[in-house]
Design a protein around this nucleic acid. Structure first.
Lengths: 241, 241
DNA sequence: GGATGCAATTTTGCATTCATTTTTCCGATC
DNA sequence: GATCGGAAAAATGAATGCAAAATTGCATCC
């Protein structure tokens, strides 16, 4: 897991597995895209910093053409900005951007919950319950990272249960964009509403068991809205960007 | 407006304004991307047909590099499929794809409605009311195209009133993907629920006036769900793809 | 000492080129 | 007549080349 300490190095990290072996049937572009997206999402380049084509080419062991194709896609995804004749920069999210992203995540999760109620199986609910109880144990132990991981898993399980590929892809994309924020957000503010979040999860799970679509949609929307408030408060406490 | 008749021509249409004058400061890539997206969304290339790089290059008067960059972006947007070594094809939407897309649009519009209730001004509501009454006149006159146009405008106004750029961009992208379907969907089925749709719009507008966020979210979700059913029925009636 | 102007270097955007892969075409075979 | 095989043609994926723009470095001037 990458720490904050290496974020924003002017010198790029050593190539994370620059394979000198050119795989025969591998579509280079897709590989580069995934690798570059992870590299940026994980925070190896500082907010607003230039994305140096040459260095990345060397790092990945490819020419500029496929790299530039990947950059265009990442720009379309909203991860970077492309300034004409002035290169690519990692998009620095404003508070408004983060707020907007959280709201959209809320809308998508709300939708996922509604759809999941129509399509989820008992087995899937059992799996979610299992993770839920695991999460509860982390809560009791005050293990925030463990809790976060379970929390994320549950939300992903709900999205998966919605059986909507368009939603799943879109959700993953927005989640990526928000993942960058994690590294700078102050986590203490999130502790304050930890108990509340647990209670909300109880309600969500209960509504899911009853397949109460409208109710779960509303619960998830509010749940994300509350999380958004916590994230925004934590940002304003630490970073006025 | 492009008709169905020219959709899927093997011969591509004459270049829509292939300017031989290379503008100095214009970022070619963005221009190409927009042009190509419109070209595909408008249905100039048949479902599942190849997107011929060479011909498009000639048509747009550019080399393959910027074109291929645009293709990668369009593939990321879900408009085309990129098959390794076998070129790009216009993504033919399955019924499931269309269903998924409609549901996601419903989720986003539901979200837009909720957020709009928090942020919309009286002036914006007045503007929506104006378009609403115009739409009602089209309804009375049985003018389906006019009705559709007003309908689309109202939904866009609600999205705009949500003051969420991420939502707006995402909404526009999904709307593009669905726009291709319009050209093949049988419209008669939509006539059947025309009256119902009008009544739903009355309720939505009323909830918006009262800033009843939760209610409008639910109304919009159901509204899009009903539209989805109509679209799916019309597809199965005309095209089993 | 700091601001300004200008040339050298770097970077960007796009075109072109090259190696592979795929498709097409055409004759041989059954 | 249909099918298979293989060479020719075309298309694709990626690298390289080149002109224009931006950045840098440095000397000059105030």
């Amino acid at each position: 897991m990458s720490s904050l300490s290496d974020a924003g190095n002017m010198e790029l990290d050593a190539q994370p597995g620059a394979e000198p072996v050119p795989k025969p049937g591998a579509p280079l572009h897709g590989e580069v895209l995934t690798r570059l997206r992870d590299y940026i999402v994980e925070g190896h380049i500082a907010d607003g910093a230039r994305v140096p084509e040459r260095q990345l080419c060397d790092m990945l062991g490819i020419s500029r053409t496929p790299l530039r194709e990947a950059l265009k896609v990442l720009a379309a995804e909203g991860l970077i900005d492309l300034l004409p004749n002035r290169g690519a920069r990692v998009r620095s999210l404003t508070v408004k951007d983060i707020s907007d992203l959280c709201d959209v995540m809320g809308g998508l999760e709300s939708l996922a919950g509604r759809l999941a109620c129509e399509r989820i199986t008992d087995e899937e609910i059992a799996q979610i319950e299992q993770v839920h109880y695991e999460m509860y144990r982390f809560y009791l132990r005050k293990d925030l990272p463990g809790y976060f991981h379970c929390n994320q898993t549950i939300h992903e399980q709900i999205v998966a249960a919605a059986r909507n590929d368009v939603l799943a892809v879109s959700y993953a994309s927005f989640a990526s964009r928000l993942r960058r924020v994690r590294y700078s957000a102050n986590l203490d503010k999130q502790r304050d509403r930890w108990g509340q979040a647990m209670r909300e999860h109880e309600l969500i799970l209960d509504a899911l068991r009853r397949r109460a679509g409208e109710e779960i949609g509303d619960l998830l929307f509010r749940h994300l809205r509350n999380k958004r408030m916590a994230v925004l408060e934590s940002l304003e406490a630490s970073d006025p960007a």
